[in-house]
Write a protein that binds this DNA or RNA. Structure first.
Length: 324
DNA sequence: CATCAGGGCCCTG
DNA sequence: CAGGGCCCTGAT
């Protein structure tokens, strides 16, 4: 195994971001349903995460510096050099987008308030938003997620980090920064296969190629309608209906809930109907009826609430479905 | 030891 | 639109 590049990020800049009210810091920055990845670490009140922007790698620390009703996020940006104010602002904007800090949740809260099932969930997570990584990083994660158990997905991503990532040292943490798309674009497919990613090597390379050639403009995609966005994302090799539905969440399309994969079907069957297995059409009709244009975010609340419970106490029926 | 499905997707017929 | 194939792993 090659030696992993190391990078010390010893310069830091601090800015403050003011989310809309209400804001749930921990629920927003930490998602128990996501598998752990080497590019971030969380403890209550603080998230450390790496971020690549073009050729630059940064370390970010987000701290909860407010309350649900008077929210404030202190963002510390760690870099290997001093940054211009423009750069700092750009990073702050990116963080604000990724964590959806400026969304108006008032109509959403009003809908959940009237929903018997959701009221206790809302009380626990009032102010939570969906979060995302950069588009390229999300795609890598979703590709290694496909047709694999969680343990294997974790292993694949870790292998990729060790082969192509950069170890970033900042604020007492050591986390992996992602490679640039050019690196995977130029890597021989057999090198990727040696990392046990299997047939996914082809998707990883072809997606990296699209990014390396500038064919994917994440900020332009943000401006598209749901239908246009979906159509564009499906053009990426290896992106199908399941991946696209996760990506719609990353783009904060809180009305987009059109796909239920088999394992999720069982979870929603339990949560919504208290049954083992309900047809997906029935699940889709139910979320539409209950939550309308907020159905994706509402489902996210249910999901994270469940997985958060699992972190603190065993949920036997769930364990069987997750199959680590 | 063999077989199989897994938190999909592509390609073919 | 249905169904086979795909890398690899752990479960059976």
């Amino acid at each position: 195994m090659d030696i992993i590049p190391q990078m010390a990020l010893s310069t830091s800049h601090e800015i403050e971001l003011q989310p809309t009210t209400p804001f749930h810091f921990d629920g927003t920055v930490h998602k128990p349903s996501h598998f752990p990845s080497g590019d971030s670490i969380w403890e209550p009140g603080t998230l450390w995460v790496t971020q690549r922007m073009g050729d630059d790698l940064f370390g970010l620390k987000l701290q909860n510096a407010g309350t649900v009703d008077a929210p404030l996020v202190r963002l510390t940006i760690f870099a290997d050099r001093a940054l211009t104010t423009d750069k700092i602002t750009a990073i702050g904007d990116e963080v604000a987008y990724n964590f959806d800090l400026y969304v108006d949740l008032a109509p959403f809260n009003a809908i959940l308030e009237r929903d018997e099932l959701m009221r206790p969930v809302l009380n626990r997570w009032l102010g939570m938003r969906n979060m995302s990584d950069s588009l390229y990083e999300s795609l890598i994660v979703y590709i290694v997620l496909q047709n694999a158990t969680v343990r294997r997905s974790v292993q694949m991503l870790d292998n990729l980090f060790r082969a192509y990532g950069t170890r970033l040292h900042f604020d007492g943490q050591a986390l992996y920064g992602f490679w640039s798309p050019e690196v995977l674009d130029g890597a021989p497919e057999e090198d990727l296969r040696a990392l046990k990613v299997g047939y996914r090597a082809k998707s990883l390379k072809r997606i990296s190629n699209q990014f390396a050639r500038g064919k994917v403009d994440a900020s332009a995609l943000r401006r598209l309608s749901n239908e246009e966005l979906k159509r564009e994302l499906l053009k990426l090799y290896g992106v199908g209906p399941a991946t696209v539905s996760y990506l719609m969440g990353d783009f904060h399309r809180y009305d987009a809930f059109e796909h239920v994969s088999p394992w999720e079907q069982r979870i929603y069957s339990r949560l919504l109907f208290d049954e083992e297995l309900v047809p997906t059409e029935q699940i889709l009709a139910e979320v539409e009826r209950r939550w309308r244009c907020w159905k994706m975010l509402a489902a996210h609340y249910l999901f994270e609430d469940l997985f958060w419970r699992r972190e603190h106490e065993p949920v036997p029926w769930l364990e069987e479905l997750i199959r680590l």
